[in-house]
Design a protein around this nucleic acid. Sequence first.
DNA 1: AGGGTTAGGTGATGCAGATCACACAGTCGT
DNA 2: ACGACTGTGTGATCTGCATCACCTAACCCT
Lengths: 238, 238
Amino acid sequence: MRAPYGLNILDNCTTCPSRGEHLFCNLSVQASQRLNEVKSTAVYPKGAMLFIEGQLPRGVFVLCTGKVKLSTTSREGKTIITKISDAGDVLGLNAVISNRPYEVTAEMMEPGQANFIPRDSLQFMIKDFPEAAGKIAQQLSRNYFTAYEEIRTLGLAASPSEKFAKLLLTWSTKTTNDDGSSQVKMTLTHEEIAEVIGTTRETVSRLFSEFKKKQLMQLKGATLVIRSRMALERIVQS
Amino acid sequence: MRAPYGLNILDNCTTCPSRGEHLFCNLSVQASQRLNEVKSTAVYPKGAMLFIEGQLPRGVFVLCTGKVKLSTTSREGKTIITKISDAGDVLGLNAVISNRPYEVTAEMMEPGQANFIPRDSLQFMIKDFPEAAGKIAQQLSRNYFTAYEEIRTLGLAASPSEKFAKLLLTWSTKTTNDDGSSQVKMTLTHEEIAEVIGTTRETVSRLFSEFKKKQLMQLKGATLVIRSRMALERIVQS
DNA sequence: AGGGTTAGGTGATGCAGATCACACAGTCGT
DNA sequence: ACGACTGTGTGATCTGCATCACCTAACCCT
């Protein structure tokens, strides 16, 4: 078992996934030390809000364990989930850097731990350790990239089926088997999936039936078995 | 008349709009000097492609004059326009910083001038002048912000009418009159508007008739007169 | 003038997916 | 064991918009 993030993210961590490209990995000894001084770790229960859309930025959260749902809601009450974050993700960075309100709401989907770095401390860090600014730029451009992916799916994918297939593909990328199949633990409700792909709960329900019937996937309890990525990819570009 | 960007963006410019928050404004003398050495200015005709989606990042462009259309196309050929950039905008920064292919195509909508800064030079700049990294982070987070706006409109706005109203509102923000009305020069074709709001040309055409009939706007040659922002805002959240 | 091209208007049609309205299963608290 | 949730399946209906199929106007070449 890998050491949880909270224990190493602020060191010159060698155990980080993504080959140390994460924020605050591989900083100088002094910078890491400073980070350790300003960070504070806390455990959050399921349903806890790390921050809420529209709030002034208090600081950034580095997620150690657990999953976080990032979402935006329109005035009419429609909600979209823009991302499901997990261990290692940095939340609220854009708001802090640009000093604008958080653009999303971050809610714990399961109990978990996160490091909090206050806004001021982060800004002082940037001043004192220019190397940190580079790291942050990297992280921001990664965030931008995923935002752009989102735009592409929302703007270009025609039908809900396509978006659903796309979503399944992103889920299966992490755990692809040798024979092309893969298994994922379902953590989202149909309602939430609907909010991710921008459709209704009913449609998601029907998509599940449809995809099962077409042998694209099957459901064993809470684990989703994806038969073949290839078949899904054909759906996406059809 | 304000001096065009090309003449001042690389100086400690006092004539910049947006109170100097633009990339590469207010740098130290040495840094500006370096920038002047590595930049190259060119004039591009209408239709010229600064870069194309999927290309490896060669560098960033700082737009001096003219308008640039940023767009993405799906494999099936559907195109969305994600942004219309104008003077002062920095193009291709994310791709260069994250060293990933350009995520959009940048096409000149009218003849214009731009400064080009090669990828390597920019990276050396960051190394040599840590202050630049901060500027870049600022710029990236601004980019992220506009991308997020895009996600909100695409994901949350229900009907084409709503998106259209929203678009008109963003156009009119720049030039609002005292009585609530405003005039904008139309530079996009219906087809292009359709690609911005993710609908078809025909629907845009009908939207124009509809909005005209509802007295929300009127058209005098190529200038669009928006009657009242308030009325549009009601549409958006209806 | 004439033909080609591009932008814009508008009617007819069809269908995917939102919406509404239930019914049913599982899980919680007491 | 009981309601009271919350999550899920599925039918019936209704409609907004994509699609197709034209047509007109303006503009640019030679």
